[in-house]
Computed example of a mutant assay.
Amino acid sequence: MKNIRLTIEYDGTRFNGWQKQPNQRTIQGEIEKALKKITNQEVCIHGSGRTDKGVHARGQVASFHTQSRIPEDRFKVALNSILPKDITIKNSEQVNNDFHARFSAIGKEYSFLIYNHRIRSSLVREYSYHVKYDLNIERMKRASEDFIGEHDFRSFMTSGSSIKDTVRRIDKFTINRDNNIIKLRVSGNGFLYNMVRIMTGTLIDIGCGKLSEDIIPSILNSRKRDNAGHTAKPQGLYLEKVFY
């Protein structure tokens, strides 16, 4: 029995998220279907985490056990030959049997793209969040510094989640602008449901003057979702890397 780790890139536009669901097109479902074709076995893959509908990935990681005799590095070739064009296996390798894509992870890095212009873009509409009002990027940068460190991020999690431990550590948060594109990049030891999108929406609200730039600490201390900003749309979000 071999344990195989896949590094996966995908365009989430036409998927109903990562997790396999009945009668829905999902990334997990498409990869498991392709694996069955090449191994003639039912294979269950485990992702590092679930990305939502419309969310993209450059470095998603998944693992699975198999009795197939296909060489480890040939899985990516075989899978890419039959997977739809919006999923690419960037690497396949054999790992220790105790490796698990989700439970072995020690951190993740995400990016978020904002298209900041009065007029929408037809070309990047599925790959960025359109914000038509002017954003003060310096205010956003200063505010983002208050996310760094270990905090209780319950205020930045979608209401109704059953997660009990909401303490997470943010190691790095950068914001840069290139013409009309603003790119946020954040890494940490873990993220709650919709945490990056709510952090981004809050920074957007700060950037346009709806919220003060020094409000992040009080939002964190309140532990109330209603005190944070809006949830940014999913198409701007990318899972960049998973750390092990």
Score class of each variant (00 low, 15 high):
Lys76Tyr: 05
Ser159Ile: 11
Tyr238Pro: 05
Arg142Tyr: 12
Pro234His: 04
Ser222Cys: 06
Ala101Thr: 01
Gly201Gln: 00
Ile114Met: 06
Phe112Ile: 05
Glu42Pro: 00
Arg102Asn: 10
Phe173Val: 06
Ser104Ile: 01
Gly236Val: 09
Glu30Tyr: 05
Leu113Ser: 13
Tyr133Asp: 13
Thr88Pro: 02
Ser222Gln: 05
Ile119Ala: 13
Lys164Ser: 12
Ile70Met: 14
Phe147Val: 06
Ser187Gln: 03
Ile106Glu: 06
Val167Thr: 15
Ser81Ile: 07
Met140Asn: 10
Asp134Leu: 15
Ser212Gly: 08
Ile87Trp: 00
Phe112Asn: 01
Ser159Met: 14
Thr88Glu: 13
Thr166Lys: 02
Gln60Glu: 09
Ile215Phe: 08
Lys132Ser: 13
Asp165Trp: 06
Met1Glu: 11
Ile181Phe: 06
Asn221Val: 03
Asn176His: 12
Phe243Gln: 12
Tyr133Val: 14
Glu213Gln: 14
Arg154Cys: 11
Val43Ala: 09
Arg120Gln: 11
Arg142Trp: 10
Ile219Trp: 03
Lys108His: 05
Gly236Arg: 14
Met1Lys: 07
Val131Phe: 08
Asn3His: 02
Val131Trp: 08
Arg142Ile: 14
Thr200Lys: 02
Met195Gln: 06
Phe147Cys: 15
Arg118Gly: 11
Asn180Met: 04
Gly107His: 00
Arg5Ser: 02
Cys44Arg: 15
Ile38Lys: 08
Asp226Val: 11
Lys33Ser: 15
Ile170His: 00
Ala232Gly: 03
Thr166Cys: 14
Arg14Ala: 15
Thr166Ser: 08
Thr174Lys: 08
Gln60Asn: 01
Lys132Tyr: 12
Asp226Cys: 11
Pro71Ala: 06
Pro217Cys: 14
Val186Pro: 01
Thr7Leu: 10
Phe156Lys: 04
Ser104His: 02
Cys208Asp: 10
Asn3Arg: 07
Gly190Arg: 00
His100Thr: 07
Asn91Ser: 13
Ile82Gly: 06
Pro234Phe: 10
Thr200Trp: 00
Gln94His: 02
Lys172Val: 09
Phe243Ala: 12
Phe75Cys: 04
Ser122His: 10
Tyr110Ile: 00
Ser144Glu: 01
Gln235Met: 11
